[in-house]
Each structure stands twice: as structure tokens, then as C-alpha cells.
């Protein structure tokens, strides 16, 4: 590389770096980072507001990821999955993201990349314990199921729960998880 070209490029890089300072002050970046850092998805040395209750627009978070900090895009699907009330995910408008979130929810082995981030990388953040202990990993989130059971089975479940000193849900879980697979099949 000749010297003039190199010096020109370095000057252009420095000019871009000045514009980057402005991007890091953008509301979209600060709100997205403030939320993701508060919840424990990201760590940073930057001074960002602590915003654990922030509601985020997907559009803003994606902008921040594409234009300032690509690591936002790496954790965004997991954040949307685990904290859906904080996001305005629309399955039509945000089709790609919604698809990945669904694959994470179902704990698929393989899935779609998101903004160039491989699915295997996205999946890690769905299962990691976070700073905010109230935020459950996808492997810990309870799922509602409705069953019609024989009255005798209900009575038995109630007695087992009482004997063990736990609620019926816990009694049922321990019976299922403790049972041998061949018996269930």
C-alpha cells in the first residue's frame, strides 16, 4: 500500500470515528444497551443508562445492532424470547426475527441465522442464567398444559402432594421426571 493511499485511508477512518461518537449517543443505541446490560445480556464499559423496565422497538434495537454494536444482534433473539413483553415483535413485520425466536422457544437443534449470526451462537443466550434472576432460561420456563384425569388419579395426586409437603404440580413433576422411560412408553 503506498503511503499517500494509507494516510488518506487513516484520515477517512478517523473522520468516521468522529461520526461513531454521535452514533453511540443515539437514543436507539442507549435505550437498547441500557436494557440489555441491565438484564445481563451484555456487559460494557460505556456509560449507558440502567433501563431494566424499558420497552424497546425491534426496529430500534436492530438499528443499534447494525450501525453501532453488532453484539446486540447476537443476543436480541434470546432477549425477545425471554422478555417478550418488553418488545413489539410483529410476526409479519419482523418475520425473520420471529422465526428465530420460535425456533429458540421450541429448542430446535438447528435454526436460521439472524443478521449473519449463526443459530448455534444465538441459542447460547437463550439458556444462560442472567444477572436478573427473575428472567428464566428457555429450559426453565414452565409451560401450561391441560389434562383431563381420572378422579382417582386426582385424589392420588392430592395425597402424594400432601405426604411430600409440596404442591400438586411439584408432586406431578417429580413423578414424571423420576419415572423410568420404559414405563412411560
Amino acid at each position: 500500500m503506498n503511503t499517500i493511499n494509507r494516510e488518506t485511508l487513516i484520515k477517512q477512518i478517523k473522520d468516521q470515528a468522529k461520526l461513531d461518537v454521535r452514533k453511540r449517543r443515539d437514543r436507539r443505541f442507549l435505550e437498547t444497551m441500557g436494557f440489555l446490560v441491565a438484564k445481563g445480556f451484555l456487559k460494557t464499559n460505556m456509560r449507558v443508562p440502567f433501563l431494566p423496565s424499558q420497552k424497546l422497538r425491534i426496529k430500534d434495537a436492530v438499528w443499534a445492532g447494525l450501525n453501532v454494536e453488532p453484539r446486540i444482534l447476537e443476543v436480541l433473539p434470546a432477549a425477545v424470547l425471554r422478555l417478550e413483553k418488553h418488545f413489539d415483535l410483529d410476526p409479519i413485520e419482523h418475520r425473520e426475527l420471529a422465526q428465530v425466536v420460535e425456533q429458540l422457544r421450541k429448542r430446535d437443534e438447528k435454526g436460521e441465522d439472524f443478521c449473519g449470526v449463526p443459530f448455534e451462537k444465538l441459542r447460547v443466550w437463550a439458556e444462560l442464567p442472567l444477572r436478573d434472576k427473575r428472567v428464566k432460561a428457555v429450559t426453565e420456563k414452565k409451560v401450561i398444559k391441560t389434562f383431563r384425569l381420572d378422579p382417582l388419579a386426582i385424589e392420588r395426586l392430592r395425597k402424594i402432594a400432601k405426604e411430600k409437603g409440596v404442591c400438586e404440580t411439584q408432586a406431578l413433576e417429580s413423578l414424571i421426571l423420576g419415572a423410568k422411560l420404559s414405563i412411560i412408553i
Binding site: R24, M33, G40, F41, K43, T44, N45, M46, E69, R71
Partner: peptide, 12 residues
């Protein structure tokens, strides 16, 4: 370095 650069990290 932490004083000079704006750094962000995921959990890895």
C-alpha cells in the same frame, strides 16, 4: 484500554 475504547461483550 478500557479508558480509551468503548467495549461491549456478550457472555462468552
Amino acid at each position: 484500554v478500557s479508558m480509551i475504547l468503548s467495549l461491549t461483550q456478550t457472555g462468552d
